[in-house]
Amino acid sequence: MVDSTGVGQGAFERDSRYITTRITRDGQDGYPVEPGRYRLVVSRACPWANRATIVRRLLGLESVLSLGVCGPTHDERSWTFDLDPGGVDPVLGIKRLQQAYFARDPDYPRGITVPAIVDERTGAVVTNDFPQLTLDLSTQWTEFHRPGAPVLYPEPLRAEIDEVNRRVYTEVNNGVYRCGFAGDQDAYDKAFTRLFDALDWLEDRLRERRFLVGDTITEADVRLFTTLARFDPVYHGHFKCNLRKLAEMPVLWAYARDLFQTPGFGDTIDFVQIKRHYYQVHTGINPTGIVPDGPDLANWFTPHGREALGGRPFGDGTAPPTPPVDEMRTADWTIERDGAR
């Protein structure tokens, strides 16, 4: 297990007891899909929240599902809205996401996590079940998808997508955390081996195919991408996942750049906030709180050559338009893109 500072005790075990209420077309759990009713609360630092921002953007749900963005750091109590004027979310009127969890359950006993969808009418969290959340955006909100939205969870491929997602989650998405939060050498060694065995499997799988499942971007690609984007800036050093950098895995590195340069992916990434979160919040791993200046991230914009494998990123659909002005990345990102560390 891991305490609030990121100090491990043996093998890392993630608490996966989420609020599993769903927002569905038929409102079976009491929360029907309604435009303008819900607010998706995220942090740009968090890989699990990053999935939701990518899917929301690809599907064009910006006008029907509002976005609240927490800052990159938090204390042991809660994510906070310190990026907003006065440190208050302008829609929910709260300073801490914890307040929305307590509006749902005054005795809520578990971690305050992002992403979370909050009912704007009551100010209470509806769900923080991040694996189901993005699937529901794809399958339950279809009436409000933009024209040309891609099909991220196509019915004929769901079994294969689910199978790939299970291994990617267990060995890669969560695998980097099992390395970083391991409390002893044996737990770390086992996690390290499992992680790089899975990355080798992905290198082989993607060698002759452009995307993980089928010939278009699916939910599987979204889930892998958010970990790959954080690998060299954070996981390689901070979490001791240092057998190879992503940039030293030629197939995965090209695949990650292909997605990064695809509208809806790279334009959700803020490397400055990502690095601040991990290096400043996990004081058990990095007690000084020093955020490293590297790596040089300009190489994310170099040619990837993956077009030669064919595939149609958006299938019969189209790329999403430019994001709304108030959802553009921070000014710090422009510096990153222009080649500074």
Rank of each mutant, 00 (worst) to 15 (best):
H145P: 09
D75H: 12
F181H: 08
R178Y: 00
D82M: 07
N174K: 07
L157H: 10
A159K: 15
A103M: 10
N165C: 15
Y177A: 02
W141L: 07
L83W: 07
F181V: 12
T134M: 06
V114Q: 00
D84I: 03
D84C: 09
G93A: 08
P115I: 04
Y169R: 14
Q132Y: 08
V126D: 00
V91P: 10
V118F: 12
D107V: 15
A100F: 06
G86M: 04
E163R: 15
V176G: 07
E120Y: 01
A159E: 14
R167Y: 13
E163V: 14
G175M: 01
V164W: 12
A103R: 11
W79M: 09
R178F: 05
P85F: 01
P147R: 01
A116R: 03
G180N: 02
D75A: 12
I94E: 03
R146G: 02
G148K: 04
P131V: 03
P109D: 01
G93R: 11
Y177H: 02
L83V: 09
V168D: 04
E120L: 15
V151C: 07
P131W: 07
L157T: 05
R166G: 00
F102L: 15
T127S: 14
W79S: 03
L137M: 11
E160Q: 15
R121H: 11
F102A: 12
G148C: 11
L135V: 13
P154E: 01
V164G: 00
G87I: 05
D84T: 04
T127V: 03
Y153W: 12
F144T: 04
V168R: 03
A100N: 08
G123S: 05
D75T: 13
T134D: 08
E143A: 13
F81I: 05
T80V: 13
G123E: 02
E160T: 15
R121K: 14
D82T: 11
E155I: 14
T127F: 09
T113C: 06
G183S: 12
A124D: 02
T170I: 07
A149H: 06
F144Y: 13
Y177V: 00
T139K: 07
R104Y: 11
L92G: 08
P156W: 11
E171D: 13
G123V: 10
T134Y: 02
V126E: 04
D107W: 13
G111V: 00
P150M: 04
L83K: 08
P106F: 00
Y177C: 05
P147I: 08
D84F: 07
P156F: 13
D107H: 15
S138F: 01
E171W: 09
Q140L: 02
D107N: 14
V164N: 00
G175V: 04
R104I: 10
A159L: 15
T122W: 09
I117V: 14
